[in-house]
Amino acid sequence: MIAVIDYGCGNLFSLSSSLDHLGIASEIVRDPARLADADKLILPGVGAFGDAVDKLRRTGMFDVLLERAEAGVPILGICLGMQLLFEKSYEYGEHDGLGLIPGRVCPLADDIRPDLKIPHMGWNALRIRRDDPILADTADRASMYFVHSFYAKDCAPAVLADAEYDAAVPALVAQDNVYGAQFHPEKSGEAGLRLLSAFANL
């Protein structure tokens, strides 16, 4: 069973619908104690980094996530959930993340041409940088749906795929059993579903 972590940050309807559609057993989990029953975890999230970290701590998910990651359970962070995996974010202040992947989260606007739109919103192509089982069914140049204004930096060793937006935006990252997707696989059509399916099959 995949546990989709519900800590009050975002809409889980699409994510759990997409897993249902793929025939993958999943459960929306609010009680951190229930995470021990799951063989994989998905950490979704939309909104602001600082607020999300507060909620992870308040719900008790923060420490359990660290403990499950240490135990080798595959974890997939999506969008803000991916950013939370890093050490630090500079979104409205400075906040500590889970620190499961080395790197920090910074404003995209500081590093790209001023004529490019913020948020980075829409479909962009993945450039695969490193092979990994999660990419088993994903073609190089597959388009995924992105929507974000901050992005991960100083995380080159973890980058499995990036997307060109004047900066090389880390799109899919991994360190051992911990994965993060900056894009929304549950909103990226067939290509996104194939990636979710590959995660479920890890």
Binding site: S14, S17, S18, H21, H184, E186, K187, S188, G192
Partner: peptide, 8 residues
């Protein structure tokens, strides 16, 4: 729709 169409 949202249960079977996975685009925004």
């Amino acid at each position: 729709t949202a249960r079977e169409v996975f685009i925004p």
